[in-house]
């Protein structure tokens, strides 16, 4: 007599085989193409992440046209501050100079956003101004040229 195989076992095995095959076939079609090329992720996602447009052009782009400002800035304490820190994102303006979305901030509040007194700032990091005492009522840029702060205007 042959070895007895209970009939429910091969039937179940068949059901499981179908299920697993189906899963593997589905998986084959669903796994993204570039998945696993460099690691456990979609390699194409690296390209996706490099895609977004920039808003800040970087100061070298500014200096291509505004060399005068570059020269001026280089001579004073604001030399390390990049243009877009105060003037806002400039990529659109770089692409087409017709787009005039460059900020030209002025006023005590704006300069104060860096220069206001706060115990959190190191003395060496920045000149701190007490806005309540220093030439109250005057706009900073009446005396200071923001590109060259110590070249005082009259």
């Amino acid at each position: 007599m042959k070895f007895y195989v209970p009939p429910q076992i091969p039937r179940l095995a068949l059901a499981f085989a179908i299920f697993i095959t189906l899963f593997l076939v589905l998986r084959h079609f669903l796994v993204p193409d570039t998945f696993g090329k460099y690691g456990h992720y979609r390699a194409a996602s690296l390209i996706d992440n490099a895609q977004p447009e920039i808003h800040y052009a970087g100061q070298q782009a500014c200096f291509k046209c505004h060399q005068d400002i570059e020269d001026k800035k280089a001579q004073d304490v604001h030399s390390e501050i990049h243009c877009e820190t105060c003037h806002g994102p400039g990529e659109k303006h770089v692409v087409s100079s017709k787009v005039e979305d460059i900020l030209k901030p002025s006023g005590r509040e704006f300069c104060g956003s860096c220069h206001i007194i706060n115990a959190g700032k190191q003395k060496s990091a920045i000149n701190q101004i007490d806005l309540n005492k220093h030439n109250v009522g005057k706009n900073c840029i009446e005396c200071h040229n923001p590109h060259q702060p110590w070249e005082m205007k009259k």
């Binding site: 007895y4 209970p6 009939p7 429910q8 076992i9 039937r11 179940l12 059901a15």
Partner: peptide
């Protein structure tokens, strides 16, 4: 039942075993 209609004692014993 997945089409398995065998309920002979031998087969049913396997149900219990499994």
């Amino acid at each position: 039942t997945l089409g398995v209609s065998d309920i002979s004692p031998r087969t049913v014993r396997w149900d219990r075993k499994m």
